[in-house]
């Protein structure tokens, strides 16, 4: 899929995120939007998956370690065809299968997550299992930059580096914001790349909103043998919705009706621009 197509899909994913969170009147739009391009690249380009056969044994696996950005994952899965896009409006509602944080029973979801720091360990375990059996499945996990303050992340990183799990890609969404403020003002995890290097990862810095950059990073990860890869993606929290960008107040807040209308108008304008770019 070319970059323009990916941009269109990512924009659809963003619309789904904003719609789901608005409908739920709760949820986490900021970190979902910052990771929307990464989600899109993984599910529309990178991973070996089949929406008509979500449990396919040979599929690559994805663990959303920063599980609170479930709206981003759900919108991507819906737009990829795992379940109806219309169902995104049931997010967080009683009786909906779209739980507030990823639940293993959702089509396309490989692991329950949401308690920060735990997803990466499960991803590491999957990668180890595939490595032990000589299987070619690859495992991807997405962490928040605030999440890496959790000690378990480093237990998992030490293990993955030691075990040389080259079928594992750890992605850190570096939007620089957490609930209480900027990550380097709350409890700085910087330098993120140097830390993962010290834990025996091959580390790549990439632009979370540039598909050429993401493509190059994931290709490099695939070519890396004998060690796991960490891709630190520099991102903008709330990316795509002007008033949410770089504002930690939108970490876990839903837009009201007026704000929702504005967000959708902005994303529709981007969609129109992308259509025009395609025709040109």
């Amino acid at each position: 899929m070319n970059n323009l197509e990916l941009q269109k899909r990512a924009n659809d994913v963003r619309k789904g995120i904003v719609t789901a969170v608005h409908s739920a009147k709760a949820g986490h739009p900021g970190g979902s939007l910052s990771a929307a391009d990464v989600f899109t690249f993984l599910y529309f380009e990178e991973m070996n998956i089949d929406p008509t056969n979500p449990d396919m044994e040979s599929r690559d696996r994805f663990v959303l370690s920063k599980g609170h950005t479930a709206p981003g994952l759900y919108s991507t899965l819906a737009n990829r065809g795992f379940f109806p896009v219309e169902d995104l409006k049931t997010l967080r509602k009683l009786g909906s299968y779209l739980q507030g944080h990823p639940c293993i029973h959702i089509p396309g979801v490989d692991m329950a997550s949401g308690s920060l720091g735990q997803g990466i360990s499960a991803a590491v375990g999957m990668a180890l299992g595939f490595q032990m059996d000589g299987k070619s499945n690859r495992v991807y996990t997405l962490l928040g930059d605030g999440e890496i303050q959790e000690g378990q992340v480093w237990e998992a990183a030490m293990f993955a580096g030691f075990r040389k799990l080259d079928n594992l890609v750890v992605i850190v969404d570096n939007n620089n914001l957490q609930i209480d403020g900027a990550i380097d003002e709350v409890c700085s995890p910087y330098p993120i790349d140097k830390k993962f290097e010290a834990f025996n990862f091959h580390v790549i810095n990439a632009d979370a909103h540039d598909f050429d950059s993401l493509r190059a990073a994931f290709d490099e990860a695939k070519a890396t043998k004998g060690m796991p890869t960490c891709i630190v993606v520099k991102s903008v929290k709330g990316k795509g919705v002007s008033y949410m960008e770089n504002n930690c107040a939108w970490h876990g807040t839903a837009p009201n009706d007026e704000q929702y209308a504005q967000a959708m108008a902005e994303l529709d304008a981007i969609a129109a621009d992308l259509e025009k770019a395609g025709e040109a």
């Binding site: 696996r61 990466i120 499960a122 998992a156």
Partner: peptide, 17 residues
């Protein structure tokens, strides 16, 4: 590192172990 160990076990179970 027991917390990671339990998570790794979860992943291993998901990989068929």
């Amino acid at each position: 590192a027991e917390c990671n160990m339990v998570g790794v076990a979860a992943g291993l179970a998901l990989a068929g172990k």
